[in-house]
Computed example of a mutant assay.
Amino acid sequence: MTNKAKVLYSGKLAGYLEKNDSGYTYMYDTGYLKSDQPMPISQTLPLSEYPYNSHVLFSFFDGLIPEGWLLNIASSHWKINRSDRFKLLITLCRDTIGAVTVLPDELEEEAENG
């Protein structure tokens, strides 16, 4: 399983989320930052050329994960432990209601090469 995800904002690559030994890192893509009027993916993750680090999954990303009965169905269907928030995020947040989409890094590479 990948420990890195691409974060899209309105279909454009905005940055990268990575799960590592010390927690999580989010970094905006330099091309996105230099693009015409880039938007932050969240008020808690304003535009920055520097990485954001957290010991736990950033609350913005955690908030994208479904709750309640939908989480129960999703976690049992894909056999994902409910405490594995990163795997839930990259599995369940490929088609969100809002402008932000999270894709496992290898899926995006397959789409680009396919």
Rank of each mutant, 00 (worst) to 15 (best):
V7M: 05
P66Y: 07
K12L: 09
T101D: 14
A74N: 08
K12E: 01
S42V: 05
Q43Y: 11
L8S: 06
M39E: 10
L107D: 13
L64I: 04
S76T: 12
S35M: 04
L107W: 04
N3R: 15
I97C: 08
G63I: 04
G114W: 06
Q37H: 14
G15H: 04
W69S: 06
G31P: 02
F58H: 00
A14W: 04
G68T: 01
D29W: 11
P40C: 08
D95R: 15
E109K: 15
S22A: 09
L71A: 07
L88V: 00
Y50Q: 09
L103M: 13
C93G: 04
N3I: 02
V56L: 07
Y32P: 00
L89R: 02
G63A: 10
L64N: 03
T2M: 09
I41N: 02
K19R: 14
D105G: 03
T25L: 00
I65N: 07
M39T: 10
P40V: 05
K34A: 15
L88I: 01
Q37I: 11
F60R: 04
P104A: 11
A111M: 15
A14D: 02
L103A: 03
D95N: 14
S42F: 14
M39D: 06
E18N: 06
D84L: 05
P40I: 07
I80L: 12
R82W: 00
G11F: 12
I41Q: 04
L8V: 01
K79L: 07
E112Y: 14
L13N: 03
N20G: 10
Q37G: 11
L47G: 14
I73T: 07
Y28G: 01
E49A: 14
H55S: 15
E112C: 12
L47K: 12
N53C: 08
A111K: 14
W69I: 01
D84C: 11
D21R: 14
E67H: 08
T30E: 11
G15E: 06
P38M: 08
K87D: 02
W78S: 08
I73M: 12
L64K: 10
Y52K: 05
A74L: 15
K87A: 03
L70R: 07
L47E: 04
A74F: 13
E49G: 15
G11T: 02
T101P: 02
H55E: 12
T101W: 12
F58G: 03
M39W: 03
